[in-house]
Amino acid sequence: MSLDKATVRRIATLSRIEVADADLEVVAGQLSGILNWIEQLKEVDTTDVAPMTGGTDLKLQWRPDVVNDGDKMEKVLANAPDGHDGFFGVPKVVE
């Protein structure tokens, strides 16, 4: 499977990663290589295997409905480049 430049540009936009036009060709080649490598999985016969969402036999753990976290606004905001009065500040989102 090989990706064209337009698809790479679209993936980059969706991922919010900046890829310069000059690099699109290279990245397309790299991503295609990864996809081709993964495509080898298709060679395995999975006719009688139910689809899985994970690779373990574990059961999903449930937590009780108990409040035991939160109340740490300062820690939550510690790495925010632009905190104001307990809020995260971000560039204005105009609707």
């Binding site: 632009d82 009065d85 971000v90 204005k92």
Partner: peptide
């Protein structure tokens, strides 16, 4: 959107 002229504030 109305607490700051150039920023949006986020409460999680």
């Amino acid at each position: 959107h109305d607490l700051h002229p150039h920023k949006s504030y986020i409460d999680l």
